[in-house]
Write a protein that binds this DNA or RNA. Structure first.
Lengths: 325, 325
DNA sequence: GTTCTATGTGGTACCGGTTACACATAATGA
DNA sequence: TCATTATGTGTAACCGGTACCACATAGAAC
């Protein structure tokens, strides 16, 4: 592969001029532009990003840390981030942390060696201390890491309130709330939103704490259905809602006539279930895209207008609720 | 951040010695090892991968090109690749091609500039010519790009045969085959497998060509159900099977008592549907892991024992088929 | 005693860019 | 007319590693 000196020689100018041409900075005559363009074309020259990075100590890599890309929540996020990154000339490095702090720290270290320009962190084990010391821009998704790190998420509390209210409006009076792991920011917020909605209403509520796993959800809901009588479920994720649907099916309980269910996330899964799952949709794409844009601003030294952004959730009414009104 | 010269100075040796120490090559005395280790420790030195790459013209980045990470088929693949890559000290760059040839070429070009060590290509628009010229190792997943490029995939034909046979064994006599886009390798193979299974059997078959999209599948199957009477569906992906399930539900046709369905892929979706979707599972993780291992071998200059690997598919029997036997 | 080999270390060119600085020329303003 | 500024270009140091080559020393082989 040709390098910048080859181009300079072919064009009959100095490497400095070629560099200026490539980066569009400083003065260059039209004539110089012409001959360099031609040389670039002829030699099929492509500048080495590695050499550029070494020299400028900057790169166009963005590290994306997620717990597990297999969790349907993250691909859409990743997709949005990748789209925006591409548009701005960055590429994204995928890291699965498995919620394992050590793995995460390790990744951060490795990527630093590779001069990543910044991180987008969408993980729950994020310990502030390992990030705030870094002199690399970071944006947090879904949960707050530290006040100094900008973050962007769905307004989970309000979203959960809306979802639960929909259950109430649809006539449910015996509601099971499948809350997510306590201590986990978004899960706590959603639970708070659930409580906001039911407070003062004359209904019965049952609370279980359930990890975001299909199998566990199915098992737990099966047990609940055998013990108490409920007519509505607010699940704090689509995956757990899917588990609940399966449990209801096994128990011979019809959805939505006997039991109504609302999920959370608005993933593909929700739309592909039968019956279609009513869910509180997060605008994952928007979150991802915005996070990427914020990070790139940070990387390029621009000021952020907002450091904390809450995106509203939207209720998608499908067939697991009756929405009489 | 400290560099290798700082370390050399602190340890009272030359940079060459430090480099040898870091790369474990050449002769170094125990004493030198000791003082260098200490200096590295004290300065918290981490070698710059960028500088190393510039010098060696090698990197530890692997480019992963997929059509769309949102398609549930790919996250699992990506996960496996990432796991293996991590274990060998590589990091993976995620690229969504959207089946767009130009975007794909663009990515390849960009990543070349960034000195990626190799590519794993899991995309259908792969035009051989853009890859065979590259002097970078490539492994293809799911479809063959060119005879010179190693590839690894599920034995789709045999998988489809097994899935279809299961439908036959379960008593279906009127089967709809939802084949994938013709011209697309894996889709063609699966269709061939379907034909292998039904050939010579005394049953009726209906064929439709359906892209791997939920909505389209639902619409198409709705139409079929209104027109002809069938008791079994072989879908060539889980997503289209899910669409078919929804269509059946809308038409008031019960699965599996009136209509049995077999999907393909074995994604999470299949297990999370209600009723659970019987499906021909590809061992996505194994495919991904193997592809990553093959690529790394190639990168590191080792010989491959096999250049084409077919992984057997496995039938996962769940609740959309009756499997009387 | 001389040659050979194994062990150990250092100097420095090189990878392919960027950029500070020096320098030249033309145009502008006082 | 002379100083000043805008325009345009080249030289070379630098980013932080790698690795070739030269060179030293010590023990083994002949």
């Amino acid at each position: 592969m040709a390098n910048i000196r080859d181009v300079a020689k072919a064009a009959g100018v100095s490497v400095a001029t070629v560099s200026r041409y490539l980066n569009n900075k400083g003065y260059i005559s039209d004539e110089a532009k012409r001959v360099i363009a031609q040389a670039v074309e002829e030699l099929n020259y492509q500048p080495s990003m590695i050499a550029r990075s070494l020299s400028t100590k900057q790169s166009t890599f963005i590290g994306l840390i997620v717990p597990d890309i297999v969790n349907p929540f993250f691909p859409e996020l990743a997709r949005a981030i990748e789209d925006v990154a591409l548009a701005y000339g960055y590429t994204v490095i995928l890291c699965n942390s498995d919620e394992d702090l050590e793995k995460e720290i390790n990744y951060v270290k490795t990527l630093q060696q590779k001069y990543v320009a910044g991180f987008i962190v969408a993980t729950s084990h994020a310990e502030a201390e390992h990030y705030i010391g870094l002199d690399i821009p970071i944006v947090a998704i879904d949960r707050r890491i530290h006040s100094s790190i900008p973050y962007i998420a769905t307004d989970n509390r309000e979203g959960a309130r809306i979802g639960t209210t929909h259950l109430l409006d649809s006539g449910c009076t015996n509601i099971l709330c499948m809350r997510g792991p306590s201590g986990l920011g978004p899960a706590d917020d959603r639970f708070a939103g659930f409580n906001d909605a039911v407070k003062g209403e004359n209904i019965h509520t049952h609370i279980i704490e359930c990890p975001f796993q299909f199998d566990v959800a199915e098992t737990m809901v099966k047990k609940v259905l055998a013990e108490v009588s409920i007519d509505g479920i607010f699940a704090s994720s689509d995956v757990t809602a899917a588990g609940a649907m399966k449990a209801a099916y096994s128990a011979g309980i019809h959805v939505p006539s006997q039991l109504q269910i609302v999920g959370y996330d608005g993933t593909m899964l929700a739309s592909q279930l039968t019956p279609g799952l009513t869910t509180v949709a997060q605008d994952l794409y928007r979150i991802g895209a915005m996070a990427a844009r914020m990070l790139i601003k940070l990387i390029e030294g621009q000021e952020l207008t907002e450091r904390e952004v809450l995106i509203p959730a939207e209720l998608l009414i499908r067939q697991t609720t009756r929405s009489e009104a």
